[in-house]
């Protein structure tokens, strides 16, 4: 890891904290899943944290974010309350989507966080449309849309990129290439595997970056976001990364070698960044110790909040189908 940019010690500590929060939060979620506190699908982002952290830290609060079903980390990075996320995964009405969405459908309108979208690639056209609205309304904000490399094989990826470029709208497409779409490796889903080149077909500027290296992601994201903001044009940023855990909690991981996973773990973005900060004297062991204590408390607080949460009464089932009967 090289120091591309000088980084303030406070910012460095915040970023490390954020990545650790994502990691510990999800480890806790996996544990709660085995205890059946969390049910349904649970997709963990463990291993990919540098991507959401690096991209989202460059954004302004008024920018729109759309994520996939693997979006806990993005929501955390956006500042959605960890307790509200945990409560959502418990299905409690104190959750960020009132428990109606669960792990795959985290929403927070105030934070401009638009899901939590679980039809692969289905949110890409919406992202283009949101950016179109920003352009028409001269809002000056941008839209950032996260998706996997599997999603880039869907027709909607191609339609959304073509439209975004045709209309010249301010949207940043962030492809999180973790090399697998469930069990299908990149080489089995893409005829041409340098995904960033797909931008060229639509006249969209693009770049690929090592998604395991937070500083590199930050640098690439800053450049991309600045460009989208200043030109109003779309951009495709491919972050090459790896998911350390199974696709979801139902996955026996028959499609890859344990050795391959272990090899990638050597590049774990979190220890990598921590070592770098220590080496550069941007943080010390004592501060890290304090940080871990704070993390423990924040996560416990989130779990307590979810545990104390309440179930929405069954009589309310019909709410939120139409606005008219949605008053709470």
């Amino acid at each position: 890891m090289e120091n591309q940019k000088n980084i303030e010690p406070q910012k460095a500590a915040d970023l490390l904290y954020q990545m650790l929060l994502m990691r510990k939060f999800e480890e806790k979620s996996a544990e709660l899943y085995t205890k059946e506190k969390i049910r349904g699908f649970l997709h963990l982002y463990i291993g990919e944290e540098a991507v959401a952290t690096g991209v989202i830290q460059t954004l302004k609060p008024e920018d729109y974010i759309l994520g996939t079903y693997r979006e806990h980390a993005h929501a955390l990075a956006r500042g959605v309350d960890a307790g509200a996320i945990m409560a959502e995964m418990y299905g409690k009405q104190e959750g960020c989507s009132r428990g109606r969405g669960g792990s795959m459908h985290l929403f927070d309108k105030e934070k401009n966080f638009f899901g939590g979208n679980a039809i692969v690639s289905g949110h890409l056209p919406m992202a283009t449309g949101m950016a179109l609205a920003s352009k028409k309304l001269k809002k000056g904000n941008i839209t950032v849309c996260f998706f996997g490399e599997g999603a880039a094989a869907e027709g909607e990826f191609h339609e959304a990129l073509n439209l975004a470029s045709l209309w010249k709208v301010p949207v940043l497409f962030v492809c999180e290439n973790n090399l697998y779409a469930m069990g299908t490796a990149l080489r089995y889903s893409h005829s041409m595997q340098e995904l960033e080149k797909k931008g060229q077909a639509y006249g969209i500027e693009s770049a690929a970056v090592d998604g395991m290296d937070l500083l590199r992601v930050m640098e690439a994201a800053t450049k991309a976001v600045d460009l989208v903001r200043s030109t109003g044009n779309p951009y495709l940023l491919v972050c090459n990364t790896y998911r350390f855990r199974a696709h979801s909690m139902f996955d026996a991981e028959l499609y890859r070698d344990k050795a391959e996973v272990e090899e990638w773990k050597k590049r774990d973005p979190i220890p990598q960044f921590r070592e770098y900060l220590l080496k550069e004297n941007l943080i010390n062991e004592e501060q890290i110790g304090e940080m871990e204590e704070r993390l423990k408390q924040e996560i416990q607080k989130a779990v307590d909040f979810a545990e104390a949460g309440t179930w929405e009464p069954e009589e309310d089932l019909g709410k939120f189908v139409y606005t008219q009967n949605s008053a709470s």
Binding site: M126, G129, A133, E159, N162
Partner: peptide, 16 residues
């Protein structure tokens, strides 16, 4: 159709 209907939906989310 999927692209522009989705874009219309997105535009409505963002105030149009």
């Amino acid at each position: 159709e999927s692209g522009f209907v989705g874009a219309g939906i997105g535009a409505s989310l963002a105030g149009m």
